[in-house]
Structures are given as structure tokens and as C-alpha cells.
Design a protein around this nucleic acid. Sequence first.
DNA 1: AGATGTCACGTTTTT
DNA 2: CGTGACATCT
Length: 829
Amino acid sequence: MTLILDPDDPAGWREAPPARSDDPSGPGSPLTEGLNPQQREAVEYRGPALLIVAGAGSGKTRVLTHRIAHLIEMRDAWPSQILAITFTNKAAAEMRERVQALLGDSASGMWISTFHSACVRILRREAESLGLSSTFTIYDSADQRTILKRIIKGLDADTMGFTPASAQAKISKLKNELADVESHARNANMNDPQEVMFLEIFRQYTRRLREASALDFDDLIAETVYLFRAFPKVAALYQRRFRHILVDEYQDTNHAQYSLIRELTRPVAPAIVSELDEHGILVRGMTDATGSIPGASLTVVGDSDQSIYAFRGADIRNIVEFERDFPGAKVVLLEQNYRSTQNILSAANAVISNNFDRKDKKLWTADGDGEQIVGYTGYTAHDEAQFIADEIESLHRSGVAYRDIAVFYRTNAQTRALEEIFVRSALPYRVVGGTKFYERAEIKDAMAYLIAVANPLDELALRRILNTPKRGIGPATETTIAQFAEQNELTFRQAMRSAGGLGLGPKVTAAISALADVLDEAAAMLVPSQAGIDAGTNEGASKISEVLVFLMERSGLLDALRNSRDPQDETRAENVEELVAQTRDFDRENPGATLVDFLTQVSLVAAADELDDASGTVSLMTLHTAKGLEYHAVFLTGIEEGLLPHQMSASEPGGPAEERRLFYVGITRARKRLYLSLAMSRAQFGEVAVAMPSRYLQEIPEGLIDWRQSPGMATSRGGSQPRALNARRGFGQGGAGGGAWGTRDRDLERFSVTRSEKPKTEWANKVTGTVRDNGDLTLEAGDRIRHADFGEGKVTQVTGEGTKRIAHVSFDRAGQKKLLIKIAPIEKL
DNA sequence: AGATGTCACGTTTTT
DNA sequence: CGTGACATCT
């Protein structure tokens, strides 16, 4: 008979259920069946530290889930002793699902969550130790910016060049390095007024969050580390509980997250063990010969070639130096790819091999070459989008479901052209991320009501709703309340309650009191019944949806939107209704959950989380969001210099290499079909620009790509027959005054001088090495030209300078068009 | 206090 | 282009 400690079992000790008669790791076992030798080793290895270097598509999720199941089935762990950390909630949900499929109910009790969710869970539980309210608010970056804006204004720091964004970035960076105001002050150069000022901003920011009992995203991790370091006993509870810690996407961990893992895997010292023992916490049987509880076993999975979050502080060294960090660590390499065709993998290998200082690693598949990669160069972003829409339709006709198709891009702004064309083509699509819904002003307003109720200390939320809807409480009144609060050492909320003492007019006073009353009443609705309090449950509390409805109606927000004469407010009211519907869903799916649970979930949902696999739509998302996903067909768009690599990355150390990894990540998402596309001109804020093909395209062996229309083809004027791009589908026709560049100037894009000056010799690959270039073709009003699609026409006007010169042309048959002279398929007659 | 209009500005990726 | 900050009017 074996006894195993089950921390979740009240009795602690439990007789281990008899081992399965069929050896779970034996032949024919579902847990190791069909695994290759490396995968199998990764599932079965037992030891303090294991690094699984998992190339893209090498089945790492399968290995992780099977490893977890194997630990349970082999009686090496109880479910409650497992902590699995993933990158997104979506990945966590998928992992939980798959573990459940392997284990059934015994999967419950495991912690499978993101870093942030796990930390919130710990912090809410231990909030008291840190002097926080357990209902602390989680501030998103917009909240941070609002606060920083106020601070910078108050300090006149904008005159020194501080912006909310710059201060936010700096603070975030520091927090990811686990620096706080004091530690940073010690290192700061006090003779530099810039640094002194920043320190003051940082100090005030920290204080404001404290006073509001709020944490920002970075705090969630950092504060948990502080908690563990400052309270070894608290840390010991978690160190003792989690015996097996598994971390996915380890290459994307930053210093704070790395430190968190280190703290969690630390052994519990004998002195603390006995202290725990005295408090009746079960530790017997867990200690080793020295009387300590040994550190948890750590499994990390990652691929340094897929590290794309350096901008967020991710430190590739965490994975590269894992073996040094955890001496005796076992390393398992997974190189066989089960996702993509060899053509796709060859392209990926070729691209990534241009990153130096990496361990050479080559993905391979036993499944054959597959189709060629398809390349396409559009004249404009709209043209590119049209090609994508057409190809998607053709894929769909050939039997590929919309949901198996994804379109990736580098920046969110690129969705615009895609969406316009997709709508026009009646393609069912969905933009993943951009998490627009919760960013809408009216939703943030409604959420602020809920936050104000959940966390009365949150001044930011209170100020937001103070005059929303309009109740005649202006900035002057707001300041009066804030000053009154400060002078009398009250919170903002308390000051609102005693509005009568502010010496304001009767109307304003009544408005403030009314709002305070509404919030108090809503708060009362959330108090559980005595029975609930006794049982430590939420029993008897009103549902979140009820509280929200109460707040929306009593505050007048909903009525204000409904009765407004602004036609957009109708949609806003519907959005608020939609939020109510979402809280109803939440109430239904999470019985017994509190308002704080709901607010937490909303704060932590990531772009990829909302992905609904059942939806029959094409998915549009950024390359970052795409990580960890896979699709039958993938369209990688905007493969241009300035976009991928993004021009912002040029100035950052390691920037171009990271952008290359991003490209690599995109390529390796594709199972069977990969499309690479770009546009010769691209619009960002109405400016005109010629785009060059991305340097990364050069790195793909020529034979792998079937260029339907290559950048080079466009140079051989007259020879090639470009698709009748915008001439179709009514593009640019009708009275809209559209043109080859779409109906708006924004189709004309910025031209990057730095790029154009690059010597052409750098472009080894002839196909993509040349772009259409009309050279110094000069046109002036009155000239007649011929266009590949639109036929002959007369130039009416020329605007713009240099490469951005635009010819306004009146075509004989196609009407008015605007053309970028440098690259348009035209010739002077 | 609030509504309306004008101008300047920024613009990567995300938990 | 879209947003946000500021000024001016009601």
C-alpha cells in the first residue's frame, strides 16, 4: 500500500489508488502511443529539471499534456500538485481540455493558467500581507496612461519631454526587471534632472496605484515575487503545494517571470517546514534527509527561434542558459514536425538560419513536399487584399473551411484594407484581437461602474463615472471633491458621500449624493447572505448581471444613450446591452463567481482567447497573436521593408533578428498552404509611399515560391499581364472618384528613404530583388499616358514630391484616377 | 457646464 | 486617417 499526500484532501493522506493494470507507459498505452522517441522521453523523464526544445509544430502541446497525464497516472503527482503555465488563456484552456480528455475528472484541481491569472489568484488570496484589498483593480495600459497623463501634467514634466507613453514604457521595463522606486532611486543619477523627474513620476504613479488599491499588468508578476521573497512562509505554502511546474513558451519569459519560477521551485527550509508543521499544515512525508521539502520539479518548453516578445522584456537567455541555471537539467530536442509540408519547413529553415548566434536546428517532416508557396505582389494594399479574398474563395470552393484559413499581418492598422475588401467580397471573417469591445468608451464606462462598486478605493473608476452620463459635475467640482478628500483624509468615495459639506450648489450636491447612493446600494446587493458568509461562499449575493442592470438604469447611463440624438449612441446602447448579455453568460457559466472574478477575467482576456474554433469564419490577426496556432492555409501579408521588419525595429538592438523570428513564426503556422503577399505601395495615414519587398523574402530559396505576380514582373512593362486588379468588382468606379490606388489617398503610402538607398546588390534573389520603378519618369498636366488596366488617359494634375509624386489622370474610359508615378503600370505616350 | 469646431499629433507587436 | 487637446460659443 502506498500513501501519497494530497494537499487538497482535508485528511491529507490518502491511499494511492491501485496502479492501472495496464502500464500507462507500456506499449499500446494511449499516453505514449504514437510518440516518437524524443517525445516519449520528454513524457517519461523524471528529475528536477527538464528542458524540452520544441521546434514549431513538433507536438509540444501533445508532449506537455501527455506528460501531465503521465505524472498523474503513474502516481507521481496528485492533480493539485501540478502547476502548468501557458502564455495565453486560450492555450491554457486548450491544455486543460486535452488533459481532461486524457484523464477525465481527475484533471480538476490542477492549476493550468497564464502567469498573470495564476498571480492574480495568489495575490487575491494573499492580498492582506501586501496591504492590498483583495478586490484590487487591475489597470490596463489605457488606465496607466490616464494616470501618467495627470501626473505629468501636474509636474509639468511634458516640458522635459516626458509623455505618458514614454513614462509607461520605462516603468514597465523597470518592473519587468523587478525594480521599484527605491531600488531605481539608488541607481539613478541625481544630477540628471531628467532622471530626477522620472523618479518623481514613478513615485507618484506608484503611490496613486497603492491608494487606489490597484495593480498594473507588470505588478501582477512583480508583486507576487515580492510577496514570496518578503513572506517565506507564504511562499512555502505554494512551494509545498506545487510539486511539478510546467512552463510553456519559456523563451518568452521576462526576468520577473523567471524569478517567479525560481521562487516557486525553491526548496522549503527546515525551519519553515517545522513552522508549517506547527500550524497544522501537512508537511510530513514530504521532507528529505535534511528536513527540507525539495524544490518542485520544473519542466520548461520553448524554442528560442520563436522568441518574439523582447519588447516586453522577454529574455532569451532564460532558455539558452537553462542548463547552467538548473545544473543536471535534462534536455530533449524535438525537431520532427507534424504540422507543415516540407516546402513550408524549408522556407522556414532557410529564413531562420540567417539569424546568427542560434543553435542550428532544422525542422523536417516525413510527409512530403506539398504545394509550392504562393507569392503575390499587389500594387496597393487593396489589390493585395483582393488577391487574398479571391484565393480564399478559391480555397473554399475546393473544400477548405473558412475556419481553417487565417490571414496574418504585422500591425493592426493593416486590417483596414483587408476588412474593406472582405466585406465587399462577402467573406465571413473575424478580426482576432484588437479586443475592441472592451475598449469602447461606453463599455469602459459601464465597467468603471462595476469597478467602483467592487473596489471603492479606485479613484480612477470613480472619476470616470462622476460625470458619465452628464449630471452637471464638471472639472471644477471634481477638483473640489478631490481637495476635500485630501484635506479631511477621506477617500474620494467618502468625500462623495459627504457631498453636503462641500459647499456646492444644491443641484450639483444632489447629483453627487445620488451617484454615491447608487454605488452604495449596488455594493449592498453584492453582500452574501449570512449563510453564505458563514460558508465562505457567495450565496445570497445578487448576480453580476443584476447589479450591472441596476447600475445602468439607476445611473441613467442607458437612458442617456437611448434618448440621445447622436445616432451613434444607439449603437452604444446596444453595446451596453451586449455587455449585460455577457455578464448573464458569465453568471450562468460560473455559478457562485463574484463580481471581482468577472472583472479579473475581463482584464486578463487576451486576443487569442476569444478565438472561437466553431465559428465558420476566416481569422485575421497579428503575427504575435498567431503564435501557438495553426491553420490549413495561411496568408502572410505586408511582407515589406518597413512593415516586416517594422521600421521601428531598426533602431532596436536585435530588432531585425526578432522580426525575422516573427516571420518564421508566421510561416510555421501553415499546415498545407502558405501565401506570401505584399504591396508595392502602402497607406499609413494618408501619406504616399513606395514599399520595397522585405529582405526576408530574399532568404527563401527561389524554387519554393510560385510568384503569381512578383515584384520583378512589374518592371517588365508590356511583357507581363498584371491582373485586372482594381478594374474589377466596381473598384474605383462609380462616382466615388476612386482610382488605381483605391478610393482614398490613404492607399498611397509613405516611402522610406533609408530603404530605397540600399544598394540593390544586396538583393541576391533576382525575382524579388527588383521592384517596378519608372525611374525619373516625369509627367505634367496635359501629358497622355497608357495604363496597363485603365487604357489611355490625360494627366490633369501632378502633386507630391520625389517618389511620392501622384498623377491625377482622366482616363478615356475608366474615369478619374490617382496614380503613384514611380510604380504605376503606366507609360508616357 | 456643455456642445461644437479646429488643429496638431502620433502611429509595433501584448499579458 | 483617427484621436485627443484646446478654444470658443451657447
